[in-house]
Design a protein around this nucleic acid. Sequence first.
DNA 1: GCCGTTTTCGGCCCGACTGTTTTCAGTCG
Length: 565
Amino acid sequence: MKNRQIADMFERIADVLEFQGEMPFKINAYRRAARALVDMPTDIETLWKEGRLRNVPGVGEALAKKMDEFLRTGRMSKFEEATGSVPSGLIDLLGIQSLGPKTLALAHKKLGIQNITDLKRVVEDGSLTALPGMGPKKVENIRKGMELREKSAGCVPLGRALNLVEEIVHRLKKHPGVGRMDPAGSLRRMRETVGDIDILAETKSGESLIRTFVSLPMVTRVLAAGSTKGSVLVEGGIQVDLRAVDSDSYGAALQYFTGSKEHNVRIRELAKKRGLKVNEYGLFDRNEKRLGGRTEEWLYERLGMPWIPPELREDNGEIENALENKLPDLVALRDVLGDLHVHTEWSDGRASIGIMAQKAKALGYRYLAVCDHSQSAGYANGLTPERLEEQVREIGRINRGGKGFRVLAGTEVDIRTDGTLDFPDTLLSKLDIVVAAVHSGFKKRVTERLISAANHPLVDVLAHPTGRLISKREGYEVNIEAVMKACAETGTAMEINAWFERLDLSDVHARRAGDMGVKLAIGTDAHEPGHMDAMRLGIGVARRAWLEKGDVLNCRSWEKRKPKH
DNA sequence: GCCGTTTTCGGCCCGACTGTTTTCAGTCG
């Protein structure tokens, strides 16, 4: 997919233009197009071949021409011109908090800074402070910004952020006079990684709540502590903001701070067209008269649409659908009847089948699929055919006692480099469910191997189909669109692996798969009972992918678990 | 640079906070 490549180039052009003081609207046009490219599930090359580049929202004549040039020649003259005109180390500095394009341009012009080393020097020797409009505090903030970037280096995986925010909310809820409290921002939207964490609290005593907040045990530094906003860094360099909000504005504030930015821009445009104004305090008419803002539901309703689930708020069609009352009825955690991918101590898990089953029952499930590794996975203590047969018998014994709950005998069978499976069909046919996955040979014909697994009549699910690890590993060299097509044709389900580092398929891919008619199976890949709580991450991905209950295999009863039947 | 049930030209979301100012620019979300 060249989508990411082009998006990165557009972002870079935008950065340079911003540095050069270009019109903000032009800069924004590049950024919008870049975002659209990353968020769309289709390969841009496909669209290009069909002559439909301009179908991408935010792409007009000029940007389409630049994309066409790149797709034809592998080069984009605008990009080369932009990056050639400015030292590259300079533009990278825009990622530093409190240092924006104006200040950077000033420092470049007056002090000749070219890169991070120069910046450090002018911060330390005081020459930056001496520039017009600059002062000691601004420079100190830039210094802290550089420090923060060195330490935190990027984003927190959603799974970690959720655990942290729950701990904080749990503690703050005990504070007297606190009403509603919700995490907002990208965390509420369940994005796979989160930059910083926003929490909203309904209270009249903001000042004392914020004092409590900034003195929580996990806080390592206090950045701000006023009467409406507290801002801290916690262990790991994660920034957490708490905002104290009045009851009457709570809904408007929650909507505002949940974002996304793009969604909110659209919402406000829409309001404006109707002679209304939306901000974080509420909805206002032409005469600045406040009409309300206590709940999000009310706000969306007054704008002529039903409440939009946060996971959809990315300006990817949700507003148009809401206006026509055509929002999907998103799958929810309570719809899940079982976990379709867990490991036990038989391979590399840390708990017995019984303990894992107990946890599944505690979660309210009706079934649990035990899918230990197959024989090739030596590193993971993969099961030999004999041990798998033994495990099947063991599961039979466990099921004899239980009613209303069933352990499914399954496997996470390796797809070998030649495309064949790691167990013979005679053995696979004895199982309740067969999950197939690539665990080695990431560069060896992965697309063909996955397709041949999809074509295998006994394979029910392809696990973690792209093999990516969030912020760690790119994933296999695979044409995932072709694999989806094979799955759609054969009725093979694809997994949404809910392990916090995987989330594979991703939201964008899962949406594409759903559109193509592929069924999705959410599995936690749990290696101990606690890992099974990650189902909510998988559900987050599924909801961001616009999936409904009927699209998700493990919302069906165990008897209907086989997607091919 | 994009885009059109008020527009093919003239708009383009809105406000807080900070720090440097004495009326505002820059940055952020």
